[in-house]
Structures are given as structure tokens and as C-alpha cells.
Design a protein around this nucleic acid. Structure first.
Length: 230
DNA sequence: ACTACGATCTACT
DNA sequence: GTAGATCGTAGTG
């Protein structure tokens, strides 16, 4: 009954090595798009394609939890590839991957994935009915929904994301149309466009609710410069 | 000890 | 489009 899912070859499911994360966090954030978030649980394996992320830096980033090092944010200074999971708004968990080298305190927030495998399990975690056509789009669209769907909690804080049962795999990131915008829900440093997303994805946290508007773009090295209004 | 405020989501108008 | 839920974290007294 384990139907082969397209794009989930053994090669694609190989974990990203730690050195992948040991680079500037903006670079890591962009490069995480198209990769696979994998969670293997007793109930089954869930896989989602990362389509939306945000970069948070350390003492130079007022929007980051690590702007001031506290007991909570201390874990952001862990070795690259470590999970930073925190509880938000009294309701939801958010999953980050620590980036850059140990001691730097930078991380990437995973904001949305496109569900590829374990859809029924995710739907059960979310308490939604997949027969509703709109349910799939929103299944893991948003940091809280993502963790809920893939059953990621505070117990996963500090975990090593370079190996099972919870890890990020290479995927097959081909040509990617990447958009960027200011980070969602942050008031400080709102001018920094450190949110990155796959422009043609239908699984974004902000795609359905507030339409994205492509503004006249400057030329950029490898990233089309597209802002969305928030 | 007490208070203010979120890196959010859902339901309802 | 807007309000309410809901609670850990962090800053202040």
C-alpha cells in the first residue's frame, strides 16, 4: 500500500549534511526551498516540500529571538542543523533550523510545506477533512499548521535535523522561482525582506488570504526580487 | 510576583 | 476584515 510518490526517491530522501547549514542564514533560507521535511513516526512517515521560510539572525536582527540571548533563544547558538522549536501565542509550535556556525545564533523558520506523503496522517493531526478541496492547500500552510500537521512539538526542541526520525532531506530542487518579502507578523526590522517562498506554489501561508503583488523588480544575482504586500 | 505581548490560527461578521 | 483564544517568555518592581 506504500505507493511510490513521485519525487521521493532514496536519493531525494537523503538527509542534508550539517555543512549545508553552516553558511550565512539568508543563503541557507533560500536554499531550503524545495527541500523535504521528513518526520518518521510510529503512525507512519510524513514528507512535505518546503515552500516558504524566513531567516532570523542574531544580535544584529531586532526581530529575532536571539537579538538578546535568553534561556529560550540560547538554543539558536547550537551547532548548525539543530531544531529550535518554540511555543507561540499560547496555541502553536514553530519549527526553526539553526544555521551558521555554533555560537552565532541564527535560524530559519519553516513557514509552509506542500504535503507529499502521509497526507491522511497530517489531516488527522490537523483535524481536517481532506475531501474538502481547500483543505489540502492549507494543511501545512503557516508555521503553526505545519508543526501541527507533522506532529512536531516542544519535545523536538534541540533535535538533530540531519538524521531520522525528524530531518530535512535533499529533495530535488530544480529550477526555483523564488520570491521574497518582509517577514510575516514582525514589527521590528520590517524593512528587511527575509521571507523567501516558491512563487508558483499553491501551498503558501499567505497566498490565498492576501494576494501577492509583483512589484517592479531590480535585478538580482539569483533571486527574482518580488515583494508581497502584507 | 505581576504584567504585556507576541515569528498564530480559527471563527465569525 | 476583525476579534478572541490562550500561555510561555521576558522585562519590571
Amino acid at each position: 500500500m506504500s505507493r511510490a510518490v513521485s519525487g521521493l526517491s532514496p536519493a531525494a530522501l537523503r538527509p542534508l549534511p550539517r555543512r549545508f547549514y553552516a553558511r550565512p542564514v539568508l543563503r541557507v533560507a533560500r536554499d531550503l526551498l524545495g527541500r523535504l521535511l521528513v518526520h518518521q513516526t510510529p503512525k507512519g512517515r510524513m514528507v512535505g516540500r518546503i515552500v516558504e521560510v524566513e531567516a532570523y539572525r542574531g544580535r544584529d536582527d531586532p526581530a529575532s529571538h536571539a537579538y538578546r540571548l535568553t534561556p529560550r533563544s540560547k538554543i539558536m547558538a547550537s551547532p548548525p542543523g539543530t531544531a529550535y522549536v518554540y511555543f507561540s501565542y499560547g496555541n502553536h509550535f514553530c519549527l526553526n533550523v539553526v544555521a551558521e556556525r555554533e555560537g552565532t545564533a541564527a535560524a530559519v523558520l519553516l513557514r509552509a510545506v506542500e504535503p507529499l506523503q502521509g497526507l491522511a496522517l497530517m489531516a488527522r493531526h490537523r483535524g481536517v477533512d481532506l475531501r474538502d478541496p481547500a483543505a489540502l492547500r492549507r494543511l501545512a500552510a503557516g508555521p503553526g499548521r505545519l508543526t501541527r500537521a507533522m506532529n512536531i512539538t516542544g519535545a523536538d526542541n534541540g533535535r538533530d535535523l540531519t538524521r531520522p526520525p525528524l530531518y530535512i532531506a535533499r529533495g530535488r530542487p530544480g529550477r526555483r522561482l523564488v520570491g521574497r518579502s518582509p517577514r510575516v507578523g514582525v514589527r521590528r526590522a520590517a524593512d528587511r525582506p527575509w521571507r523567501f517562498y516558491l512563487r508558483d506554489s499553491g501551498y503558501l501561508s499567505r497566498a490565498g488570504t492576501s494576494p501577492m503583488r509583483a512589484l517592479p523588480s531590480r535585478r538580482s544575482r539569483d533571486v527574482p526580487r518580488t515583494w508581497s504586500r502584507v
